[in-house]
Nucleic acid binder design. Structure first.
Length: 853
RNA sequence: GCCCGGGUGGCGGAACUGGUAGACGCAAGGGACUUAAAAUCCCUCGGCCGCAAGGCUGUGCGGGUUCGAUUCCCGCCCCGGGCACCA
């Protein structure tokens, strides 16, 4: 055995062995219970970053642990390969996106393999391959048939920098999720998926996903944003028409003293009376000129304009003025709001500003609201007043009664409203899945027949870098014939949002080569749902909501049978590092700093806050460099030890060295004793001295602790800490006159428990300890209850809740004996002397608390 | 504003159902080995008092429940994330 731990040599050797033996291949015919472990697949940017290392290290622990525990584990890896960076690279470096992407994949695959992750590489897929996206096109066609995919003209989010539209979910605070540039509204004809048809089911199931973190479920519920309410028709004065409003507060109907319309409301211009036309027009223009960020910001002042028209409150029959208001949104509810200034704060402010009348219809208990003196709207509960036959009811009952009353009179009906909007999936990009539709002057938009799939993404495109998708300029692609009439037609040149590909890749992993349908239903039934999904919390709404939707769509298309794709979800924290900058040269990479000074100009370096590692701020660590210096096992161990998975991980160079030292320590420990140990037989429990029995107890306690920490809890940091404690105990024991069999059991336990975390060094040490069979074959160790038994136990003695002594008593000691021993402790006696013992509390195995006064 | 998290030594973090607060690791200080360095090993390490035994104090702040609170309850403060004129 080598005296020195040499990770480079060991790791490449074991990786080759695993690849050759096909150790991690998942087969359906395997009789063991299945376990599908999945990490979110990466975008092939070119190099893996520390976030990947962390995500995939966490997943690999679980994968290896489950495999050791007798599960037939499916642990696949692939590439979310369409997307904009490939097009940017094409423009900047003149490489083709396909080539650039494939090179990146090759490079990153090598990097992942160097980390020793236990993937079934036979199932690898890349979403940019026609073998993958052709099935996506087919699913689209089926969705189109069922009306779940449709095209419509709408005001959509347009990112001027990416030159494409975005889904609502992809707009963060008015900016593009990808490039952070402001988003504009634009009226365009675009493809949508009818995710709103699944709003109720998506919401419902959030209550049936116990394996998901509550914050993620809350975010999804908020995003869906269900509210129960009422649609009410307000007849227009001097017209047969009426204006429909949506409200969640029908109980306040009698207090509606005016109406507010969105400036984009179709009736807005029509309602303007002759004398007010100019003012109304000016207001509409003003609101439209304000961009989305400003429009939805807090600071925007509530403004409006009177249209000159009136409608009637259907409950009171009173004439009420109609306003346009800048805070009313066209895309929520009906774009028209019945304004109740006494019971809605926005309406209150608006009414005060424009001198509109107020009428109290809900009286809170113990307070008398007076419209003349109110300082704010009362939005809480109360008793109904000024509401004709509904007076005296509590307002909750009033809601029901008024809704029913309106329904009876044909003036309204109960409805549900969602915040969720349909998913906009067209993108004006080249590097994506072509939408399989053609446009014929005679027949309109026609789906491409299934027999003509895939619609291949052509490769002979030019990247000018000047606006617009190159696909839209490629004549050979555009011109085709109409599948209906055979006449000349044009192809759709938009491609799918890349979130479409990531909405079903986890299904395709069950049968990546299946050639006759998107998925093999039998394979999907076997493997799905994913038992454990792991990825960043930043996907809480977008990806995770789309994937749930898509799964339900495929179910309803009869392709699969599951309702939900992911049974358990773990959202991991980010990898952070402090930023450093030079006043002269801006952000600095770690290697541009020497002894606190900028390597370029020797100025003092300014240390910034801990932030998510990002190239733009240069606070990044390259995993390759880390592997080169310390090896993959150390990189894995550090990311798992430094913080629990769901928390952010703060990078610390010294911490890495500490992990490397720990692995060296284990290596040395085995090396120094392997001669003694490999000659040992089985442990004879009866013949051991106290020191040996004590060590065995620690060994078996550690097995129990580590098993519990990994299984379900994912507390890898404490699992590793427990093994470190065991190693400390072994070091101490080995320095005495150790029993060879006990020492062997202890060392082997360390190796076996650490295997999921650091697979290379443990495989090597296992072999050095004389095992011809693999660690995988040995399985996960179990603990021996009898070895856990101790002869004595430590009891803490408190007086009035403060620790005053510690006792070691025989394990068999009864309550009385313990109590007596506690009373006799010298220090305890000092504290109870001269006082009356009121009460003695004994917690078995733990403590005695003597209450005195 | 509303909804989720979170606040513990110099640092990352532990304490699982209310029962010894600070496991494990890092950093720091002291020592051993060495011609020297690295590596390794040993000791100390929340604060204050004390030679020591030991005592007081301490988990964001203020209260409460309890024999006992980092843990439960009430009211605040701060940090992170999500949503936000949603009618």
């Amino acid at each position: 055995m080598q005296a020195r731990y040499n990770p480079a040599e060991i790791e490449s050797r074991w990786q080759a062995i695993w690849a050759e033996q096909g150790e991690f291949r998942a087969r359906e015919e395997d009789a063991r219970p299945k376990y599908y472990l999945l990490e979110m697949f990466p975008y092939p940017s070119g190099r893996i970053h520390m976030g990947h290392v962390r995500n995939y290290s966490i997943g690999d622990v679980v994968s290896r642990f489950k495999r050791l525990n007798g599960f037939n584990v499916l642990h696949p890896m692939g590439w979310d390969a369409f997307g904009m960076p490939a097009e940017n690279a094409a423009i900047q470096h003149g490489t083709h996106p396909a080539l650039w992407t494939r090179e990146n994949i090759a490079n990153m695959r090598t990097q992942l393999q160097k980390m020793g992750f236990s993937y079934d590489w036979q199932r690898e897929l890349a979403t940019c391959e026609p073998d993958y996206y052709r099935w996506e096109q087919l699913i689209f066609l089926r969705m189109f048939e069922k009306g779940l995919a449709y095209k419509k003209s709408a005001a959509v989010n347009w990112c001027t920098s990416c030159e494409t539209v975005l889904a609502n979910e992809q707009v963060e605070e008015g900016c593009c999720w990808r490039c952070d540039n402001p988003v504009e509204l634009k009226e365009l004809d675009q493809w949508f998926f009818r995710i709103t048809a699944y709003a109720e089911e998506l919401l419902d199931w959030t209550a049936r996903l116990p394996g998901w973190p509550e914050p993620v479920l809350t975010m999804q519920r908020n995003w869906i944003g269900k509210s129960l309410g009422c649609e009410i028709d307000f007849p227009l004065e001097g017209s047969e028409e009426s204006i429909r409003v949506f409200t969640t507060r029908p109980d306040t109907l009698f207090g509606a003293t005016f109406m507010s319309l969105a400036p984009e409301h179709p009736l807005a211009r029509q309602l303007a009376s002759a004398d007010r036309r100019a003012e109304v027009e000016a207001f509409i223009r003003k609101v439209q000129s304000v961009d989305r960020i400003e429009r939805t910001s807090d600071e925007l002042e509530k403004e409006g304009v009177f249209t000159g028209s009136y409608c009637r409150n259907p409950a009171t029959d009173e004439l009420i003025p109609i306003f346009l208001a800048n805070f009313v949104l066209m895309d929520y509810g009906t774009g028209a709001v019945m304004a109740v200034p006494t019971h809605d704060q926005r309406d209150f402010e608006f009414a005060r500003k424009y001198g509109l009348s107020l009428k109290v219809v809900i009286q809170p208990e113990g307070e008398l609201l007076d419209p003349a003196t109110m300082q704010a709207a009362w939005e809480g509960a109360g008793t109904m007043v000024n509401s004709a036959g509904f007076d005296g009811l509590d307002n909750d009952t009033g809601k029901q009664r008024i809704a029913a009353w309106l329904e009876e009179r044909g003036q309204g009906r109960q409805t549900v409203n969602y915040r969720l909007r349909d998913w906009l999936v067209s993108r004006q990009r080249y590097w994506g899945t072509p939408i399989p539709v053609v446009y014929c002057a005679a027949c309109g938009a026609r789906p491409v027949p299934e027999s003509q799939l895939p619609v291949r993404l052509p490769t002979d495109v030019e990247f000018s870098g000047e606006g617009g998708s190159p696909l839209a300029k490629l004549e050979s692609f555009i011109h085709t014939t109409c599948p209906q009439c055979g006449g000349p037609a044009r192809r759709e040149t938009d491609t799918f949002d890349t979130f479409v590909e990531s909405s079903w890749y986890f299904l395709r992993y069950a049968c990546p080569q299946f050639a006759t349908a998107p998925v093999d239903a039998a394979a999907v039934s076997h493997w799905l749902p994913v038992d454990q999904y792991i990825g960043g919390v930043e996907h809480a709404v977008m990806h995770l909501l789309y994937a749930r939707f898509w799964t339900k769509v495929m179910r309803d298309l009869g392709m699969i049978e599951i309702d939900e794709p992911f049974a358990n979800l773990l959202t991991q924290g980010m990898v952070c590092m402090e930023t450093r900058s030079c006043p002269e040269h801006g952000w600095l990479y770690p290697e541009q700093i020497a002894e606190g000074r900028c390597a370029l100009c020797a100025a003092d370096v300014v240390t910034g806050r801990n932030e998510k590692m990002s190239k733009s701020k240069k606070n990044v660590i390259d995993p390759d460099g880390l592997i080169e210096r310390f090896g993959a096992d150390t990189a894995r161990l550090f990311t798992l030890f430094a913080a629990p998975p769901e928390k952010d991980l703060e990078w610390n160079e010294q911490g890495v060295e500490g992990c490397f030292r720990f692995l060296n320590r284990i290596w040395r420990l085995v090396h120094d004793h392997y001669g003694l140990v490999t000659a040992a037989g089985a442990v004879d429990g009866a013949a051991l001295d106290t020191a040996a029995r004590d060590l065995r107890r620690v060994v078996h306690q550690t097995i129990r602790k580590v098993t519990g920490d990994i299984d379900g809890r994912f507390h890898f940091n404490t699992a590793i800490a427990a093994v470190m404690e065991l190693v400390n105990a072994i070091s101490t024991y080995a320095g005495k006159t150790p029993d060879a069999a006990v020492l062997r059991e202890a060392l082997e336990t360390v190796v076996r428990l650490l295997n999921p975390f650091v697979p290379h060094i443990t495989a090597e040490l296992w072999q050095e300890l004389g095992h011809a069979d693999s660690l995988e074959a040995a399985g996960w160790p179990s603990w021996d209850e009898s070895a856990l038994q101790a002869d004595s136990m430590l009891i803490v003695v408190q007086v009035n809740g403060k620790v005053r002594g510690k006792l070691t008593v025989p394990a068999a000691a009864d309550r009385q004996a313990i109590e007596q021993a506690a009373m006799e402790d010298d220090n305890v006696r000092r504290f109870i002397a001269g006082q009356t013992v009121r009460k003695v509390i004994v917690v078995p195995q733990r403590l005695v608390n003597i209450v005195v006064a």
